[in-house]
């Protein structure tokens, strides 16, 4: 089983007061900490587990700026065998469809039985790149996958529906699955582990080497563009309880009492 896993570098936004940059179309990135998209962590772990059980090779691939090398190296430390990084400033401003085109071009030169992506990327939250890629490659797919069982020439999977319900499917390989969080428990990557792969080769590609022209990516090659971003309008919002710990606790007791809880 040769597996390709797609990963994306995204900013961590919890506890961050995000600001709109001067273009009005994206966030200010200075000072933000970036890491691998949470869902992709599960995808890499799943790929490595399948390899450990059934043999084969895992290739991690990302499209992004030069800084993306850190997330691709992390995938190597987790157990991926090879890494491909597509970096080209002309790809900036690509939507999910254009990113899928780049991935499809890069994947043409890599043999695979299964492709894994995350369900969605924490930053744009499109839940679109994986399935679009499957269509471009002409292979079947399933989204929101919570279990994978490899059988001969096919894969038995569970996918998540609403309300905790799931469905079971069989899908013939080659196929693409978008991995839902909780499918496994991603292993811990130590600093030592990252250091060990520091010298491993990461194959780099740009649009030229992939045979893509600039108008196939970026805003020109995209179907959608973000015209402007803005913080969500604050409606009524919560009444913030302030004061010392004890004062706040007293105020909460009043709320409890009003709600008939104590």
């Amino acid at each position: 089983m040769d597996i390709i896993v797609c990963i994306k570098r995204v900013p961590e936004v919890a506890e961050i007061d995000l600001q709109v940059d001067q273009t009005g179309k994206s966030i200010k990135e200075e000072g933000l900490v970036f890491g691998v998209n949470d869902w992709d962590n599960y995808a890499v772990e799943e790929a490595v587990r399948i390899k450990e059980k059934h043999g084969g090779k895992v290739t991690a691939i990302t499209v992004g700026s030069a800084e993306s090398e850190e997330v691709i190296r992390r995938a190597l430390a987790l157990g991926a065998d090879e890494a491909v990084m597509v970096t080209d400033p002309q790809a900036d401003g690509s939507d999910a469809y254009a990113i899928a085109k780049v991935l499809a071009a890069a994947i043409k030169e890599i043999p695979y039985d299964i492709i894994l992506t995350g369900v969605l990327a924490d930053d744009d939250g499109c839940a679109q790149v994986g399935v679009t890629l499957a269509e471009l490659l002409g292979i079947p797919h399933a989204t929101l996958v919570t279990a994978i069982e490899i059988e001969e020439k096919q894969v038995k999977i569970k996918r998540e529906l609403e309300g905790g319900m799931e469905e079971e499917l069989v899908v013939a390989t080659p196929a693409l699955f978008t991995i839902q969080s909780g499918i496994n428990e991603p292993r811990y990557v130590s600093i030592m582990g990252i250091r060990k792969v520091a010298k491993k080769e990461v194959a780099t590609r740009d649009l030229g080497t992939l045979g893509l022209s600039p108008n196939q990516v970026g805003p020109a090659g995209s179907f959608t563009t973000v015209e402007r971003i803005f913080p969500p309008p604050v409606g009524e919002g919560a009444q913030i309880l302030e004061g010392s710990s004890d004062e706040v606790a007293t105020k909460v007791m009043d709320v409890f009492q009003k709600g008939g809880v104590i």
């Binding site: 936004v13 563009t225 973000v226 015209e227 402007r228 971003i229 913080p231």
Partner: peptide
């Protein structure tokens, strides 16, 4: 037709423009 969606776990909203089609 102009769709609006959220990004960054609901911390930003985006006005999206479609390519003409």
């Amino acid at each position: 037709v102009i769709p609006y969606r959220q990004m960054y776990g609901g911390k930003m909203c985006a006005e999206v423009h479609f390519k003409e089609a």
